[in-house]
């Protein structure tokens, strides 16, 4: 087997990966409150500002108030951002700057475990942030349906998906500056195209057909109806797309990380 194909061999995981997850959790716990507030403040300000401000100009979107429309999208893109930031900036500092991963690899833990632990940890952290935002949304009365609780697992899956995509960048990054490209070229356009702030039906036909392939579109398609108390259409398809992005991106991220650290 050549080295390049060896990097693409399937992950070999052990339960020790939870020790790595726990390490990140213990660090987070030290600063849990500021961390949650940090993840919460920005999306909530945007949601309230745009929701009330624009909401005056746009009385109804798809049959609901603009702010109720915005709530589901906000939950999705803030989850995406939280997961992405975690694997990009914190992940890179653990991998490259602090050499935390190298220290862990001296124990009976393989790189595969570490990358998987980072994936699950980033999803967990983004899900915690998502739950906090959901609580704010409920407190303001923008959702009243018990179906909103079903959004939580979708938020976790969204976190996994964007953590996996972000890990590809982390594996490739020469320095922190590299991540700016990812945000400008991928995350920001996706936020605008995925129906977070306005319905995708407003997009020109060709743009729309591409935008509908983006993972964030699928998250929004699931979460928004749930918050509005409706069963989403095509649940299986949306879940499958998010899961497929997660698996393929994780596999690629793992291969690139192995190439970087195990050569």
């Amino acid at each position: 087997m050549s080295l390049a194909t060896a990097h693409f061999s399937p992950p070999v995981l052990s339960l020790r990966l939870f020790a790595v997850w726990r390490r990140n959790f213990l660090v987070w716990r030290k600063l849990a409150l500021p961390s949650i507030v940090g993840n919460l403040a920005d999306p909530v300000i945007y949601m309230l500002g745009l929701g009330y401000g624009l909401g005056m100009l746009v009385p109804q979107v798809e049959g609901v108030s603009y702010i109720a429309f915005l709530a589901g999208g906000t939950l999705c893109y803030s989850t995406m951002n939280a997961a992405t930031f975690e694997v990009l900036y914190s992940g890179f500092s653990r991998m490259h700057v602090q050499k935390t991963w190298e220290a862990i690899m001296n124990a009976p833990i393989a790189l595969d475990d570490i990358v998987a632990a980072e994936l699950v940890w980033a999803a967990s952290k983004s899900c915690l942030a998502g739950v906090a935002i959901l609580a704010v949304i409920a407190a303001f009365g923008f959702t009243a349906s018990p179906l909103a609780l079903a959004a939580i697992p979708v938020v976790f899956l969204t976190g996994l998906c964007f953590a996996a995509l972000g890990l590809i960048m982390t594996a490739l990054a020469p320095s922190y500056d590299f991540f700016m490209y990812y945000f400008t070229l991928f995350i920001t356009p996706m936020t605008l195209l995925s129906g977070v702030f306005f319905p995708q039906s407003q997009l020109p036909e060709t743009v729309r057909s591409i935008a509908e392939l983006l993972p964030l579109s699928h998250a929004v398609s699931l979460v928004r109806p749930l918050l509005l108390g409706q069963m989403p259409a095509q649940i299986g398809l949306h879940l499958a797309v998010l899961a497929a992005f997660t698996i393929v991106a994780f596999w690629l991220a793992l291969a690139l990380t192995r190439r970087r650290l195990l050569k």
Partner: peptide, 16 residues
């Protein structure tokens, strides 16, 4: 590796 201890060349203590 479960039976081995390692002191790496570059310090990798957890600053957190």
């Amino acid at each position: 590796r479960a039976r081995v201890g390692v002191v790496p060349q570059i310090d990798s203590l957890d600053p957190d």
